[in-house]
Measured scan of single mutants.
Amino acid sequence: MTEYKLVVVGAGGVGKSALTIQLIQNHFVDEYDPTIEDSYRKQVVIDGETCLLDILDTAGQEEYSAMRDQYMRTGEGFLCVFAINNTKSFEDIHHYREQIKRVKDSEDVPMVLVGNKCDLPSRTVDTKQAQDLARSYGIPFIETSAKTRQGVDDAFYTLVREIRKHKEKMSKDGKKKKKKSKTKCVIM
């Protein structure tokens, strides 16, 4: 069974824990209790493949930012979460993405942009803004509501699919490099 290491990042209060708990335990946590770091595991079937999701729910508070490099190193894919009623959390996505790329030393890291709290009427981040940002990053965008469960499975499952595509691409690139290195030079 394939294991996928997913990391949920975003500013404090955007609903990272609520999304994760909704996926794992099928219930909505409405009281806000700032996370330092929590880890969850769940076995699911995605596109006919049974897999184990190892999900790291991270601290959004700035005082825990020193811990970010460590979990970013171990993560295979990242859910970059903002709240649709919090423009600052949307603007912060850029910083999370840049930090992930720096730590992973790669421009090509599996990510999904997630606009959470889409059940709320007080939207300050337009869907088109988020779609445009995701398009500019070359990553999928999904709106979710941890409260109603809308888009929750889709967000995590899409990230797994992005990781699969990335692994497939990397193995193809690896095979191309191996083929090239088999060419021999004969000096007579």
Results as ranks from 00 to 15, higher is better:
107 E>F: 12
119 D>T: 04
86 N>G: 11
78 F>T: 01
106 S>M: 12
102 R>S: 07
73 R>K: 08
66 A>E: 07
98 E>H: 04
107 E>C: 13
76 E>T: 13
70 Q>T: 01
113 L>A: 04
107 E>Y: 13
98 E>L: 03
114 V>F: 03
124 T>M: 09
124 T>G: 12
68 R>V: 13
73 R>N: 09
108 D>N: 09
77 G>Y: 10
102 R>Y: 04
97 R>A: 13
63 E>T: 07
77 G>S: 03
70 Q>R: 01
115 G>D: 03
68 R>C: 14
107 E>K: 09
99 Q>R: 05
83 A>R: 04
81 V>W: 00
86 N>D: 14
125 V>D: 11
73 R>E: 09
86 N>S: 09
100 I>T: 03
115 G>R: 03
66 A>N: 07
109 V>E: 03
88 K>V: 07
78 F>Q: 00
98 E>I: 00
104 K>E: 05
67 M>S: 04
72 M>L: 14
110 P>S: 03
91 E>R: 05
108 D>A: 08
109 V>G: 03
64 Y>C: 15
73 R>C: 08
116 N>A: 15
63 E>M: 04
116 N>E: 07
121 P>W: 09
124 T>C: 12
118 C>A: 11
121 P>G: 13
66 A>W: 04
83 A>T: 08
79 L>H: 02
77 G>W: 02
63 E>P: 06
117 K>C: 14
104 K>W: 14
77 G>R: 00
126 D>Y: 08
124 T>A: 12
65 S>R: 03
116 N>V: 15
126 D>E: 12
88 K>Y: 07
114 V>Q: 01
87 T>E: 14
74 T>I: 14
70 Q>S: 03
83 A>H: 06
118 C>N: 10
76 E>F: 08
124 T>E: 12
110 P>G: 02
119 D>L: 02
70 Q>I: 00
75 G>F: 14
107 E>H: 09
81 V>G: 04
75 G>R: 04
65 S>K: 03
66 A>P: 09
82 F>A: 12
123 R>V: 12
66 A>R: 03
107 E>I: 13
117 K>W: 14
88 K>W: 10
64 Y>A: 15
84 I>N: 15
67 M>R: 01
121 P>D: 13
99 Q>V: 06
73 R>H: 07
72 M>S: 13
111 M>W: 09
84 I>P: 14
75 G>K: 03
106 S>C: 14
67 M>I: 09
107 E>A: 11
125 V>F: 10
66 A>V: 15
96 Y>L: 15
124 T>F: 09
118 C>V: 10
112 V>R: 00
98 E>D: 09
114 V>S: 01
68 R>D: 14
69 D>F: 00
64 Y>R: 02
70 Q>W: 06
123 R>I: 09
116 N>L: 15
81 V>Y: 02
73 R>F: 07
119 D>I: 01
83 A>N: 14
111 M>V: 08
117 K>L: 15
104 K>A: 13
